[in-house]
């Protein structure tokens, strides 16, 4: 099957060291793919090269088989982008701007589709307002409608929920899922890792212009994440025994809650047995599944403050 997006050995340099360093990946049609990384990782630069906002340094980008440089006319019709920064034309109302944006893509106005986007994104009461009078949240909603007005097959959402309230965020993700169910491929960047975990079937973690990991969200969490055992002790401990210190265990301030990562290759039952053998009496047991945030922090080196030092 032809990939929705193919990136091959993509490089980009501004003034100074490269900001994107030879990355390659494919996105399968119909999937929701997350591109995660700390600020300055190269995510937006990558997205801008895909969308045509930035020139490609070297390498190749194809959208549904169409080269984004040689065949830009076809490839850009297939892509809808919601940029991270609020991008609006203050002169026009929501309705006029949506009609215009469809026209830029060579698409005849489809009133039913336009009205549906307006309704689904809660823009109806604000149709007559010029952009400059819209709140930040409304501008973001408008930008999603704008990205979808020409019915793209690949929708790129660059931090779509930044600065958006909780209610809107939920309705927005529901909408994105619905769009995806209809067959639109989604490329997503977000700082809310919990959202990425819930939304994305596959994730790439990027830092310093390189892809550090890329696999299904499940595999990524399983491979890179560390399950944690949290134990409520019957008797408080003054200090941790050396064996537990070797296992990177932590004790809370009262000395009654013990947390420690389950070592790779060892089950939580076996670990619990080792703890009990030390003479500790356990009152309650809880196992915590690894979160994408932990994986992200480990892979990017941000947990230990190493992330921005390179």
């Amino acid at each position: 099957m032809q990939p929705a997006l193919r990136i091959e050995n993509l490089w980009k340099t501004y003034d100074g060291p490269p900001v994107v360093k030879g990355i390659s990946f494919d996105i399968t049609p119909g999937e929701i793919f997350g591109l995660l990384g700390p600020n300055g990782a190269g995510k937006s630069t990558t997205i801008n090269m895909v969308a045509g906002v930035s020139r490609i340094g070297s390498g190749k980008v194809e959208v549904f088989g169409h080269d984004t440089v040689r065949d830009y006319s076809r490839s850009r019709r297939l892509v809808g982008v919601m940029h991270q920064e609020i991008v609006i034309d203050n002169f026009f109302t929501i309705d006029a701007a949506l009609k215009m944006h469809a026209g830029y893509f060579g698409v005849k106005d489809d009133p039913a589709w336009r009205q549906m986007l307006i309704d689904r994104l809660g823009l109806r009461p604000h149709l007559g307002k010029v952009m400059i009078k819209l709140s930040g949240g409304l501008k973001r909603r408008f930008m999603i409608a704008k990205a979808l007005i020409h019915k793209p097959r690949l929708l790129i959402l660059d931090e779509p929920t930044a600065g958006v309230d909780v209610e809107l965020r939920h309705s927005l993700w529901d909408f994105v899922r619905e769009i995806n169910d209809e067959g639109t491929t989604i490329l997503l960047t977000t700082h809310y890792l919990e959202e990425a975990e819930q939304m994305c079937g596959r994730i790439a973690i990027m830092n310093h212009g390189e892809i550090l990991a890329m696999e299904s969200t499940y595999d990524l969490l399983k491979r890179c994440g560390r399950q944690e055992l949290v134990l409520q002790l019957q008797q408080p401990l003054d200090r941790l025994p050396q064996e537990l210190l070797n296992l990177s265990a932590r004790l809370d301030a009262k000395g009654t809650v013990l947390s420690l990562p389950v070592p790779p290759g060892e089950g939580s039952g076996s670990l619990l047995g080792r703890i009990c053998a030390l003479g500790l009496t356990v009152e309650e047991i809880e196992t915590r599944q690894p979160s994408l945030e932990e994986v992200f922090l480990d892979l990017t080196g941000l947990r230990n403050g190493k992330g921005s030092s390179r």
């Binding site: 969308a51 920064e85 609006i88 944006h101 704008k146």
Partner: peptide
């Protein structure tokens, strides 16, 4: 910055 609205189009 709204020039990007045109740059992403065909």
């Amino acid at each position: 910055g709204n020039i990007v609205d045109l740059l992403v189009t065909p």
